[in-house]
């Protein structure tokens, strides 16, 4: 049972981490975050369900299409909910993305439907023996996919031209402009990647859970907690914090029951930030006078 809790915790944690990496990406390029990130996760699951089950498309067609549409959703958020405010130096993008999230959740309620649906996955029924516990293959796959995507992000940032361009915008946006890099476009791409990450998390988690219009709300908030806890500017920190958060939740559930999960995990978040104000893995910027 302990093994099962660890697997669940790692699975949950890596999904938090995926969402939180989205927060991280948009933050480093533009110092804004998308509070509709939770709804992006829901959009991924809902689109996947609709294309795959309702419209009966093959998985290999539905999956890329879902990710493409999710990326589009990210672009829309950046263009209409973030840039109009950010470019004017206003902080109202925060409120705008919250309102956007409510809007999208409600739109899903009326288009997708009001009842939870099951996104079947044959992987779930495939059992794998691990330390004497039968565990669904999907449950093992989720943390692996999460880690693979985080690794892919790391490799892309380090070794590809797009990654270098992104890094340039992160490290010095003004100098990046001087290189001829269209920083606005890079910010938009970061938002698109971030919603795609959320969508992947939604698709992966859907078979374990259920698909519904409200599924993103709490998940998005927890992912934000993870991003902050890890130190939002540090990708590695965010990923590790995601796993820690997921494991903590699973272990609290295991030993105290899920009624106390949120009290304890959020209290730990407050405590952690009181001790490390820039997150567990963040670093203090030197104050220039």
């Amino acid at each position: 049972m302990f093994t099962a809790a660890i697997v669940t915790g790692l699975g949950l944690g890596s999904m938090y981490a995926l969402l939180a990496l989205g927060f991280h990406l948009t933050y480093v390029v533009s110092h804004t975050v998308n509070f509709a990130q939770g709804s992006a996760m829901m959009v991924g699951a809902v689109l996947g369900y609709t294309l795959c089950i309702t419209w009966g498309l093959s998985l290999w067609l539905a999956l890329p299409l879902t990710l493409l549409l999710s990326a589009l959703y990210g672009l829309v958020i950046e263009r209409w909910l973030v840039r109009p405010f950010h470019s004017r130096g206003s902080q109202a993008w925060l409120m705008a993305t919250v309102a956007g999230g409510i809007l999208v959740d409600n739109l899903a309620l009326f288009t997708f439907g009001k009842e939870p649906r099951q996104f079947e996955s044959s992987l779930l029924n495939l059992k794998v023996e691990l330390f004497g516990n039968a565990i669904g293959a999907l449950q093992l796959l989720i943390p692996l996919v999460g880690a693979a995507i985080a690794l892919a992000l790391f490799l892309v940032r380090r070794y590809t031209r797009l990654g270098k361009v992104l890094e340039a915008c992160v490290q010095n946006p003004r100098a990046a402009m001087l290189m001829g890099i269209n920083v606005n476009r890079v910010v938009a791409i970061a938002f698109a990647i971030s919603t795609v990450f959320a969508a992947i998390a939604g698709l992966l988690i859907a078979p374990l859970f259920s698909v519904n219009a409200e599924m993103g709300m709490l998940f998005g908030l927890k992912a934000f907690a993870v991003a902050i806890l890890g130190g939002i500017a540090s990708a590695g920190g965010v990923f590790v914090a995601g796993l820690l958060f997921g494991l903590t939740e699973a272990l609290v559930t295991l030993y105290f029951g899920s009624a106390f999960t949120q009290i304890l995990t959020f209290a730990l978040v407050i405590l952690a930030l009181a001790i490390r104000p820039n997150g567990l893995f963040g670093s203090q910027a030197l104050v220039k006078v």
Binding site: Y27, V33, F224, I228, V269
Partner: peptide, 10 residues
């Protein structure tokens, strides 16, 4: 954002 998170958690 760190302050926002503390208050949310609270």
């Amino acid at each position: 954002s760190y302050l926002a998170m503390i208050t949310i958690a609270f």
